[in-house]
Every structure is written in structure tokens, then in C-alpha cells.
């Protein structure tokens, strides 16, 4: 009876939400399940097995996957570290720098990597690197990843900083801390959850990138996504599903981690709270 009176409620919205989640999760779950399929055919279910996981690490393609994984992880780590540092500095300037001319322009610059379609960024970067004679390879991938990770690192950091009352830095300065000490001892510890969330998101974004990497990687170097894409072109094999399952589990793990970090961090940022 109460439910019917609740004016917020719309019949049918719950089923749509469920449908939405089913569409989002069904393909992932199916791939997860079939990655444990003990059959060469990807269609028939041949019983539960870890053989395709073994195959990734010991099979004929294991060396390729290992190289690709190493490249992906080290690039993601470096790109996330660099972009988080740059984004933290930018966030402090944008959120705590007062009003200044060109602020909107700066914001546009920071968010440009999100605004420009990925394929356009890929084309432009490829053209630029070849024009200036920058050798395509590990370093070119790393540089491109730093660029497009900046806005993803920036957003949670800036959001966090906006939620931190300005009187904390003022109090620190009032208590004889220099500007740098105020940042290091007060602002940065308070920003830490945002910085960590930004780092993790940048890490995932770098780990996930396919389009840009595919354009500028040059010959002879692969990251996990480009290796998977290359393999999938010849049809979906069960070992790719196992690899995908590992990768998506890592992504979900990291996102879950960052979700709880930002939730935990939300407490106690308002002065006097």
C-alpha cells in the first residue's frame, strides 16, 4: 500500500535496471565460465578445467604473453605515476590557485585527452612521432599513455581537493608552516585517497588501452591488449578467454579497491566534521 503511494516509484524501472546489469555482465560471465572449459572447441562444454590457464603460462604462446604482460604492467606503472604527479600539481593549481585568467583554457587542456576521440589522438600521435623522427616502441607508448592518463588521474584528485576545506592549509600556514610544508604535511595526507584513486584509475586506463597503443607501438612490441587483438583476429581461442578472465579480474579488483578507498576517505574532510 505504501509502495503504491510513493510518488518516486515508477513501475518497470527495476526490470530495466536489471536488464541493464544483465547486458553489462552477461558477456563477461560467459567468458569467465568458458575459460574453465576443458575442450578445444569453444562451443561445447567439456567439463571444468584449468588447462587454459596453464596454457597461458606454459603453452607455446606463453613467451609472447609474458613479454606483453611485462610491457603492459611496467608502462601502466610508469604512466600512472607520471600522470598522477602531473595531475596532482595541476589540481592544486586549479582548485587552490584562486580565480585567474585562462582557467577555463587550462581545464580544457587538461580534459583534452578525454574530449578528442581516441582514434584521432592515435592518428595525431603517430603522425607527430613519425614527423619528428621519434622511434616507435616502448618509449612512444609510454609517452602517449602519460598524456591520456592525465585527465583520469586529475578528476578524482581535483574532486577530493574540492571537498577539503580551505581552512586546513590556512591553519597550517597560520601555525608557521611554509607553503610547501602546508602542502606536504596537511594537504597531501588529506588528498591521499584522491591521489591513490587517481593513480589506480590511470593505471587501469593505461593497462586497458588498445587503440592508441595499436597505432604507435611500432613493430616487434606488444602489450596485452594488442596481443589479444592480434590473437582474436584468428578467432577466439580458449586461452584468450583465460587471459581475458585474469585481466578483467585484475581490473575489477583494482576498481573495487579504489571504490573502498574513496569511500573511506570521504570521512572527515570538512573542517569540524
Amino acid at each position: 500500500m505504501r509502495r503504491r503511494l510513493d510518488i518516486r516509484r515508477y513501475p518497470g524501472f527495476l526490470p530495466v535496471t536489471i536488464l541493464c546489469l544483465v547486458v553489462l555482465y552477461a558477456p563477461l560471465l560467459v567468458v569467465m565460465v568458458y575459460s574453465f572449459n576443458d575442450s578445444l572447441s569453444i562451443t561445447r562444454w567439456g567439463g571444468f578445467s584449468f588447462r587454459w590457464y596453464m596454457d597461458i603460462f606454459t603453452g607455446p604462446e606463453s613467451a609472447k604473453f609474458k613479454d606483453a604482460a611485462w610491457n603492459s604492467l611496467t608502462i601502466a606503472l610508469c604512466a600512472a605515476t607520471a600522470s598522477t604527479t602531473i595531475a596532482t600539481a595541476a589540481a592544486v593549481a586549479m582548485v587552490r590557485g584562486g580565480a585567474f585568467r585562462g582557467k577555463a583554457l587550462n581545464l580544457a587542456l587538461i580534459s583534452m585527452p578525454i574530449m578528442v576521440p581516441e582514434i584521432v589522438t592515435a592518428v595525431a600521435t603517430l603522425i607527430f612521432f613519425s614527423a619528428i623522427g621519434f622511434t616507435l616502441g616502448y618509449l612512444s607508448i609510454l609517452v602517449a599513455h602519460i598524456v591520456f592518463c592525465i585527465p583520469f588521474a586529475y578528476l578524482p584528485i581535483a574532486a577530493r581537493l574540492q571537498g577539503i576545506d580551505g581552512s586546513y592549509e590556512e591553519a597550517a600556514q597560520d601555525l608557521y608552516a611554509s607553503r610547501f610544508q602546508a602542502f606536504l604535511r596537511v594537504l597531501m595526507p588529506l588528498m591521499a585517497p584522491g591521489i591513490l584513486a587517481g593513480f589506480l584509475l590511470a593505471f587501469i586506463i593505461s593497462l586497458d588501452d588498445f587503440i592508441i597503443t595499436n597505432f604507435i607501438k611500432g613493430a616487434g612490441i606488444e602489450t596485452l591488449p594488442t596481443a589479444i587483438f592480434g590473437a582474436v583476429k584468428q578467432g577466439i581461442k580458449p586461452n584468450i578467454m583465460a587471459l581475458s578472465t585474469i585481466m578483467l579480474s585484475v581490473s575489477i579488483l583494482i576498481v573495487t579497491l579504489s571504490y573502498f578507498i574513496s569511500r573511506y576517505g570521504r570521512q572527515g574532510t570538512k573542517a569540524g566534521a
Binding site: E170, A171, D174, A177, A271
Partner: peptide
């Protein structure tokens, strides 16, 4: 003179106690 060079201290309206 910046605030950190003034021998003056402030009690803030919402205290601004460092939560960490």
C-alpha cells in the same frame, strides 16, 4: 608578510583541526 611569518595565531570558525 605571509601568515607563517606572523607571530599571530588563529582559532578558525570550524576549527580546521588536522584530521590525520
Amino acid at each position: 608578510l605571509p601568515p607563517n611569518r606572523r607571530p599571530i595565531n588563529t582559532v578558525f570558525q570550524h576549527y580546521a583541526l588536522f584530521p590525520h
